[in-house]
Every structure is written in C-alpha cells, then in structure tokens.
Design a protein around this nucleic acid. Structure first.
Lengths: 101, 101
DNA sequence: GAGCTTGTTCGACAATTGTCGAACAAGGGT
DNA sequence: ACCCTTGTTCGACAATTGTCGAACAAGCTC
C-alpha cells in the first residue's frame, strides 16, 4: 500500500494541529523527537496496536512523520526540518512536556 | 455567569492545540491577532450565532482569549503575551494563512 | 512450510464535536 | 414600558474520532 505521505504545504494547518491535539499522538511525537527513528511497536502508550496504527496514520497523513519498511517492522521518523521550516516554533512549543514558566 | 478563563499553565497543551485545530476558530484567532479587541458579532464566518458562541467558549476555556462585557456586546481579545511566553512560536506558526515556503 | 512477530485493515461501538433553531437573558434606545 | 440588538444556553442531530478485538498480510527464522 502506498504510504501516502503528503506534501506538508498541501496539508491544512488545522490538520497539523489536530494531529498534535491528542495525548497519545503527542507522546509519539515527543518520543520521535527525542529518540529519532523508531519502530511502530516501540510506542506502547497503553493502547492496542490497532489504535496505535491508527494514530500513526493520522500523524503520517498530516505530514508529521515519514515511514519506511524495514523487515517486518516499519520505522517512523519525524519530519522535523520541514516542520520547522514551514511552522517555525510549532514543534518546540509542543515538544516540552511542561513548558518553561 | 462566570467567564471561566483558566490559567494557561493549567490547560493541557492538547486542549490549546485542539482549540486551534478548527477552521472557524482559527479565523477568529487570526482576526483577533490582526484587529485586537473585537465584539463577538464581528466574527461572521458563515456559522450561526449559536455556533459562534460555542467556538468562542472553546477558545476562552482553552485559555486563548479573554472576554469582557461592554453594554450588550462582549469584547474578546487574544491572550497574546501569555501564549507567546508559554508557547513561543505557536501563535506565529499558526497566524499566517499561508506560511512562507 | 510452519510458526512467530509486526503492522494494517475492518467492522463495531461509545464519546466527542460542530452545527442549528428556538428559547432565554441582559442592555440600550425611543 | 416596549422593542431591538447582542449573546448565551438548551436540546437535537449528524459527522467525526478514539478505541477495541478479530481477521488479514508480509516478512523472518527454524
């Protein structure tokens, strides 16, 4: 199946924000930001693998991540540079669990 | 009734993002960013006043806006400084209708 | 090939959300 | 006092969304 990774400029801002506006997905994004490329299975945040797969798709289709196959696994990584270029400050604003007061 | 304007630090990031992840609300935020304080009625984006009221409440309860009464109107303004302090770059990333390529 | 691991997809379901019209509340103007 | 303007609140409804288990697909290892 086609991974369907859109051009980030073609994704409405609201979709990017909506993708980030979920606790599970935000944890995934933070894990990716900290750990770099990671397999889907490494994101165990108390949801089933069906749900995890769903969240990863939302992130991918919002242009936030890229996915490549590696054996039976799929490696996911954050599209950091593109995001920082198109929405400077957005990732930084969101990556910190508790922003500086 | 109490306006219920929460402390921004007490609002989860996902709520802030969710509040911004809607087209109508984003238009409201952009109008506020550009025009400063404005009456609720000035946001006519093709939705009924009930819906508009709903969106303004979402924004207010997410800590994005403040509201004060003025006659029969209610004036809304963006909590810009607080937002920029707590989530630097977030507003800027979101305010431009079409971000620079 | 058999079996295991890793993900995806497919309903299904509950909860949330965006939307509306109608009813209500509060102020201002005449 | 009456009406008009401005918003809010109250169901109601449709659409979307998060969640799951079960079934499926693809690849590795033995």
């Amino acid at each position: 199946m086609e991974p369907h990774e859109p051009d980030l400029t073609a994704v409405p801002v609201t979709s990017v924000l909506a993708a980030l506006a979920d606790d599970v997905r935000l944890q995934i994004v933070r894990a990716l930001a900290e750990g770099g490329e990671a397999a889907c299975g490494s994101f165990d945040f108390g949801v089933s693998k069906a749900t995890r797969s769903h969240h990863l798709r939302v992130l991918r289709e919002a242009g936030l991540t890229r996915t490549r196959a590696a054996g039976t696994s799929r490696l996911v990584r954050l599209r950091r540079d593109e995001l920082n270029k198109l929405y400077p400050g957005l990732l930084d604003a969101v990556l910190t669990p508790r922003p500086p007061a």
